[in-house]
């Protein structure tokens, strides 16, 4: 399912909404999550999962092709931990 398919589904199940509003709703939700992570905040959605940002220290890496050492700067990576309810659903036999 892509973002546009998600929007179409929501528009179908919510016929009283304009499709452009459904689009704005979906964009707003993911935009809020992204902005929170960019501030260093956590986003906790019980039952679904939690987004957070982890810091990776600067390190000396290697170019695997040439073996040269290269400096890798400190960076921040987004991380998602699946919520218990969703994890259980993914492993339920009836689906």
């Amino acid at each position: 399912m892509t973002k546009s398919e998600l929007i179409l589904r929501l528009a179908e199940t919510n016929p009283h909404l304009y499709q452009r509003d459904v689009e704005r709703i979906v964009t707003t939700i993911f935009g809020e999550i992204a902005d929170a992570l960019a501030r260093g905040d956590r986003v906790e959605l019980r039952g679904f999962g939690a987004f957070s940002v982890k810091r990776r220290d600067a390190r000396v890496g290697r170019n695997p092709r040439t073996g040269d050492s290269v400096r890798v700067d400190e960076k921040f990576v987004p991380y998602f931990k699946t919520g218990k309810q969703l994890r259980d659903r993914l492993n339920a036999d009836d689906e």
Binding site: R24, I25, I29, E32, G40, D41, E44, L45
Partner: peptide, 20 residues
């Protein structure tokens, strides 16, 4: 980092502000 936590409540509020 501000160290805050965003939950469903803030997402709903953002949708409320944005879409009316």
């Amino acid at each position: 980092m501000t160290g805050g936590t965003v939950t469903r409540a803030q997402l709903s509020e953002a949708v409320y502000q944005e879409v009316g």
